[in-house]
Design a binder for these strands. Structure first.
Lengths: 221, 221
DNA sequence: ATCGTGTCATTGTGATCACAAAAACAATTG
DNA sequence: CAATTGTTTTTGTGATCACAATGACACGAT
């Protein structure tokens, strides 16, 4: 058993732990786009030496979750209309497929926990809990995608989520989450009916609607 | 002007140079899949200290061009039928779109140089020059994709190419490139006719045919 | 011969230091 | 007061060292 583990190999190292912490912050809104991120600053904050931070940051730069400017300064990338458009396209191109591939691997227990997650999402939305909404929404999608047994595609999608995470947070923080609709019930029904085409449509619809809301609110041209 | 450059920021650093060298090797067949890659070994070979190699390797791991096992050993990942299938899907999902987006940015000069590249490809194929074929084929595709002005999508595709590069090389080295067909002329004609749908089809066809050849030869189940 | 066992070399990881470039700040000038 | 210059601090980069874990290898027992 010397093969790399699915989520991540070489677990237990410091830079792995740092990587996860930074990743969480990026996904769920710990960083504000444009604000510079310093190695020593993070190191002190996370109480580790600058070294593992360097490796974690370098990795996040490669995943396009952070951006290295030619001043050698590192920031969370700002969103542009063009970039946002590319992200929407990539999500539409990959995520419905991932969901469809996950379909055969669902069982009763997984569907139940997916419904529980969805209820959490609704709860967060109604109490306008932006971070909670993002966390549970992320969990909902990646619980599905993770069942697809398609690591390569999953990695692509994970990288994409890292890229619009901070921006999404910004929008929800400004405009609230209360007037979002829950599109996930349609997906859940499709899963229970084992309806691949329906699931694809539901995921695509969820992406289109959620991203349209964000785009219209924050990227008005 | 403090924005990051398109291809890469912080150019001129040692780890950037090392990164490019390793990337070249991976794309065009310097490494054999499964063979372990050591930091100190590469450092000595490239005549740099282990430090920049560490950063470059970490970055390539994040791009899934290298794989970090839980023994903490780094290798070029082996190809599997499942992974290959995911790669084909992702290429079909992204590359035709990139080509279509590049279409408005073509001019006479670019079309000419694209034809020149295509002639080089044919030359390499007929003399069974596997590495030359891969280099020119890569240049052909990324000259098109690079015109799309879609950095986010381009990065996804670049990562995918890094993942099947070493495997492709293995196949061509074993079975030769002589019996490949040139599918690029169809694409070139579509570009000249400004025919987006036709270009999409041509790129998709090129992917399907090339990958099918590789898959059938090397991944017979 | 084959399997265990102990030794030794090699590896990735993390810490620390040195340095040059960049940014932040202060003093000075118009 | 605004803009500019000069100084100081902070930053990323690269080098080197220490260390624990892993792999390679030779030796010996069954």
């Amino acid at each position: 058993m010397s093969k790399a583990a699915s989520p991540e190999a070489a677990a237990g190292t410091t830079h792995e732990r740092v990587y996860r912490q930074l990743r969480e912050r990026i996904l769920f809104g710990g960083f504000r786009p444009g604000r510079p991120v310093t190695l020593r600053g993070l190191a002190e904050e996370l109480e580790v030496s600058p070294m593992p931070v360097r490796e974690a940051v370098r990795r996040l730069i490669a995943e396009r979750a952070l951006e290295l400017h030619d001043n050698r300064r590192v920031t969370v990338p700002a969103m542009s209309k063009e970039r946002f458009d590319e992200i929407i396209f990539a999500r539409h191109a990959l995520e419905p497929e991932l969901a469809a591939r996950a379909l055969p691997h669902f069982d009763r227990a997984r569907i139940v926990s997916l419904r529980v997650i969805d209820e959490d999402i609704d709860a967060c939305m109604s109490r306008d809990d932006a971070e909670g909404y993002m966390r549970t929404n992320h969990r909902f999608h990646f619980m599905i995608y993770g069942l697809a047994e398609a690591e390569t595609l999953l990695a692509l999608v994970a990288s994409i989520w890292l890229q619009f995470g901070p921006f999404m947070r910004l929008v929800y923080g400004r405009f609230g989450t209360a007037n979002l609709q829950d599109q996930h019930l349609v997906a859940l029904d499709a899963i229970e009916r084992n309806d691949a085409a329906g699931l694809r449509r539901a995921i695509a619809e969820d992406i289109g609607q959620g991203m349209r809301f964000i785009g219209e609110e924050a990227l008005a041209e």
